[in-house]
């Protein structure tokens, strides 16, 4: 966890230096003020959003679905897997362990690709906790509209790749 943290704060330091060289202290102040303004709007909704996401993870049981997304389940299974992926709770530390449960209980590879793809793209948890507070609902509508078909396409491409290899 601390590696990425050092990296991003390093980026902050470098950008800060660049701004300071070009605009001096007023530039740094203007940059911080705009950061602070967004921070203020997040102050209340971010904790609430994290709380809601955490409760949601508790009340949606998903593990029972693995028998519907086996290797023989085809496009329907790929679509279902993409949806299940989107509902997986939490960040990678919560959802990858569940993905392993699916994999070990007989999900097909294209279906698993769609599941991980669905988790990456839909990510109900991330949507609630970060995207809505920062970007607003319209952006979410646009993003969901644009990426609705992606996990299914990923599953189909994976199916194709497996076919090529065999």
């Amino acid at each position: 966890m601390s590696g990425p943290l050092i990296f991003i704060w390093g980026a902050v330091a470098i950008l800060g230096l660049l701004v300071w060289k070009r605009e001096g202290v007023p530039g740094l102040r203007a940059g911080s003020v705009s950061a602070l303004n967004i921070g203020r709007t997040l102050m209340l909704r971010l904790p609430l959003a994290l709380l809601a996401a955490s409760f949601l993870a508790l009340i949606i049981p998903l593990e029972h679905l693995s028998r519907f997304i086996g290797p023989e389940s085809g496009v329907l299974g790929i679509t279902l897997a993409a949806l299940v992926g989107g509902l997986l709770p939490g960040g990678p530390m919560a959802s990858f362990p569940i993905a392993i449960v699916f994999m070990n209980s007989g999900a097909g590879v294209p279906q698993m690709v769609a599941l991980i793809g669905g988790w990456s793209v839909f990510a109900l948890h991330r949507l609630l906790a970060y995207e809505a507070p920062i970007m607003g609902w319209r952006f979410i509508a646009l993003r969901l509209g644009s990426s609705m078909v992606l996990p299914v396409i990923a599953g189909l491409i994976a199916d194709l790749l497996l076919g090529l290899r065999a």
């Binding site: 943290l5 980026a11 950008l15 203007a30 967004i38």
Partner: peptide, 17 residues
Amino acid sequence: LPQLAAGLLIGGLVTRL
């Protein structure tokens, strides 16, 4: 929080650059 703060600052600084 520390990562969010960094992200917001990066956003703010990039708009200056």
